[in-house]
């Protein structure tokens, strides 16, 4: 092994990146059958909640979105997402660093709020809320919620890779076997 390779490995080993197994819990709403995944690790809690297309439709109808635009949003699988700082230090996240992996193993970037807003502006929509902010810097006790959109069909599985920093130290996490909500509530 070349000396330069040894140096690279040594430097890489010092980089402040940690990958640890997070605690993941899955909650099933007995009434609706909809699932919620929660993972917490190194001060970062992420919760993804399946949302029905009807719910998404109702939210954006309430904000007077044109129907074609709502239909377009509903070609994505939409989750309610809640990010919380569970640590006594500062955390930050950047959605543009997050990816999802489909069942074929292909990795895709998660669409950001800024990307949506740019498209909405072109469609003449001024409304700029409901989506999870692209970036967040959370102090003690801070948390935020908003929609996260994944370009996959109903009822399909995927893994979400996400990153954050805790007090300046970078961390990674993966939520495995997430599933897009079905078209409708499944009757028992």
């Amino acid at each position: 092994m070349k000396k330069s390779t040894h140096i690279f490995i040594f430097i890489a080993s010092l980089l402040p990146v940690s990958i640890q197994a997070a605690e993941v819990s899955v909650y099933k709403n007995e009434q609706s059958g909809l699932l919620t995944w929660t993972s917490e690790d190194n001060g970062f809690s992420i919760e993804l909640i399946q949302l029905l297309p009807d719910f998404v439709y109702a939210v954006y109808s309430k904000h007077d979105f044109p129907k074609p635009e709502i239909d377009r949003i509903n070609t994505y699988c939409v989750f309610g997402s809640i990010i919380k700082n569970t640590s006594p230090q500062q955390i930050s996240y950047k959605v543009s660093d997050w990816t999802y992996v489909d069942t074929a193993g292909n990795e895709h970037p998660v669409k950001t709020k800024s990307q949506w807003l740019e498209e909405w502006r072109k469609a003449g929509i001024k409304f700029s809320w409901t989506l999870l902010p692209d970036t967040g810097t959370f102090e003690v006790g801070d948390w935020q919620q908003g929609f996260t959109t994944i370009k996959l069909a109903r009822d399909t599985e995927f893994d979400l890779n996400y990153t954050w920093t805790l007090d300046g130290i970078a961390h990674k996490g993966t939520l495995k076997n997430l599933r897009c909500a079905p078209e409708h509530i499944k009757q028992p």
């Binding site: 909650y27 709403n29 009434q31 609706s32 909809l34 919620t36 919760e47 909640i49 949302l51 029905l52 009807d54 719910f55 439709y57 109702a58 939210v59 109808s61 309430k62 309610g80 809640i82 919380k84 948390w143 919620q145 509530i185």
Partner: peptide, 17 residues
């Protein structure tokens, strides 16, 4: 608004924190 309230109830887990 009514549609919102109906489906909002279904997605009640949204209100947990």
């Amino acid at each position: 608004a009514l549609l919102f309230m109906t489906v909002f109830t279904v997605n009640a887990a949204w209100e947990q924190p």
